[in-house]
């Protein structure tokens, strides 16, 4: 049995893997990755080997395998769909677009220099609008006329949104506009390497129904795997298995 550990910036995910996911847990990383690793270790104990990935991967004691989240995500997705060509992963701290071919990572691009292309963007705006992430996603789902949000910077976007609120624009349209802005940014990054089908959308961002709807509207056919936030942990475990 392999413990696949993905120590992300927002959440630490662990799975027990033996040809399939036997059990899984997720705990908040909250700037304390070592505590998060310990917490997962207490919840998932029945394993022989450990494969680690994510930003905190180097903090795992005596791992059997350490790989980057780019490789891990690619392998997790290829385990689910061996013919996948493009992977879009929206996490809390970064977003990635990974092209895979013949079972290998071909190219990848990341947005990690600015919150505007990450899950953090939505979280910050949701906070400004005094909504939980879940409420924000539900609002966005209701919209048929997303507002246009042009600012590429989260701080500037907040100002833009404030203007829209003061103009009396609907909350649902603002929420959908925020999500569209994020998707456009990620698609823009992905176009550097080309987005080709079949596409898998994963990471914590894929849990947001508003984001999924916008992705499907802009990119067409894409697949959301079950437990999309565990793909990195799965890929690490698969790599060791």
């Amino acid at each position: 049995m392999v413990l696949g550990l993905d120590i992300g910036s927002c959440y630490t995910k662990g799975i027990l893997f033996d040809g399939e996911i036997k059990s899984k847990v997720v705990v908040k990383t909250s700037f304390k990755p070592k505590l998060a690793i310990e917490a997962v270790n207490k919840l998932l104990t029945d394993y022989d080997r450990i494969a680690a990935t994510g930003y905190g991967r180097e903090l795992v004691i005596n791992p059997d395998l350490v790989i980057t989240e780019i490789t891990a995500t690619a392998r997790g997705c290829m385990f689910i769909n061996p013919s996948v060509r493009t992977i879009i992963d929206i996490g809390g701290q970064d977003s990635k677009v990974i092209k895979v071919l013949n079972g290998k990572v071909e190219r990848f691009v990341m947005n990690d220099r600015c919150a505007a292309g990450t899950g953090n963007f939505i979280e910050k705006i949701a906070q400004s609008l005094e909504l939980t992430l879940e409420e924000f996603g539900k609002q966005a789902l209701k919209s048929n006329h997303p507002e246009q949000i042009d600012s590429l910077c989260v701080v500037m976007a907040e100002t833009e949104i404030l203007s829209l609120v003061s103009e009396g624009k609907k909350l649902e349209d603002i929420a959908a506009g925020v999500i569209d802005s994020l998707v456009r940014r990620i698609v823009g990054i992905g176009s550097q390497i080309g987005i080709e089908e079949p596409i898998i959308f994963c990471g914590g961002g894929a849990l947001n129904p508003g984001l999924v709807k916008a992705m499907k509207r802009i990119l067409g056919n894409l697949t959301i795997p079950a437990n999309p936030q565990f793909i990195g942990a799965l890929g690490a475990a698969v790599s060791l298995s």
Binding site: T68, E69, T71, F108, D112
Partner: peptide, 14 residues
């Protein structure tokens, strides 16, 4: 940053 290290490490893995 750690992200930059990750990019280079991922490139090596690729």
């Amino acid at each position: 940053t750690e992200q930059l290290r990750t990019r280079i490490a991922a490139f090596a893995e690729t």
